[in-house]
């Protein structure tokens, strides 16, 4: 077959468009799971948290989180009577092995604050990714495509909550997936499964039968750093004003 240069010019774009249709297949999806029917988040009930560190250990076991990095961790706040603005915050090894004991006479108030990715609806971390490797899934979970991530760590800097890290071996961004591999199969997250007091609860805001709706109506609930307008979705019940 003899093609003139003119014919080739016409054929090449046509071939490109045809190839695109050949490549477009059906997407992978978990069976019986429709992404558009869910909008995941989490509720942290501060008065129930005892700082046992079960959630941190469970997360590390479930998600193979390297030592010294945390997808979730627990902080202990100590707010003294004299200085409400500057609480003393400790989180030894993420609270994995619990917390040092406190002398009875120590004044001030103590409480535990479990932290994890807030799965923001307007997340700063996904906006700065130069290659489209991190994104908000249609069901409201902020995820990292580790095959696409090149480890530039822009997102690590952009997260105002410090919830991301660069995986020391894979050299890509890593973070809480809200146990996406579990919640899409009808299970709860590893941290919620392991929490002995129910201080953590997985929440589906699109499920009208989820007890979160009643809870939000009847409790004083906050998110972290609301002034940053990140659309944070991890709700904290009875959060102290000193928490940042």
């Amino acid at each position: 077959m003899n093609l003139s240069r003119r014919q080739l010019m016409i054929l090449l774009p046509a071939a490109a468009i045809a190839w695109e249709h050949v490549l477009a297949g059906t997407p992978e999806a978990a069976p019986n799971y429709t992404m558009s029917e869910h909008w995941w988040s989490m509720l942290i009930d501060i008065p129930k948290c005892i700082g046992c560190g079960n959630c941190v250990r469970a997360c590390q076991a479930e998600n193979d989180v390297p030592d010294g990095r945390f997808r979730t961790w627990v902080e202990r706040y100590h707010v003294s009577d004299e200085n409400m603005m500057y609480p003393e915050v400790i989180s030894p090894d993420g609270g994995k092995e619990g917390f040092p004991s406190v002398a009875k006479e120590d004044a001030g108030k103590y409480f535990f604050v479990p932290k994890l990715c807030n799965h923001c609806a307007d997340s700063p971390c996904t906006q700065v990714c130069p290659v489209g490797a991190t994104f908000i899934s249609p069901d409201g979970v902020v995820l990292v495509d580790q095959k696409y991530c090149m480890g530039c760590a822009y997102c690590v800097q952009a997260c105002p909550y410090g919830c991301r890290y660069i995986h020391p071996e894979k050299k890509v961004a890593d973070k809480c997936t809200l146990c996406y591999h579990r919640i899409t199969k009808g299970l709860t997250t590893a941290c919620c499964e392991a929490c002995p007091t129910g201080a953590r609860q997985l929440v589906d805001l699109k499920n009208p039968n989820d007890p979160i709706h009643e809870f939000l109506r009847t409790h004083a609930v906050q998110v972290l750093k609301p002034q940053m307008a990140t659309g944070a979705k991890v709700f904290y019940n009875e959060l102290d004003g000193s928490v940042r």
Partner: peptide
């Protein structure tokens, strides 16, 4: 091929993350 399916990212990544094995069986 799945890039741009749901947004400016690889749509197939969602399925890959969902396919991770679970270590906690769940109380059920």
């Amino acid at each position: 091929k799945s890039f741009g399916e749901y947004g400016h990212y690889r749509g197939a990544a969602i399925g890959e993350i969902a396919a991770h094995p679970a270590h906690f069986a769940g109380h059920q």
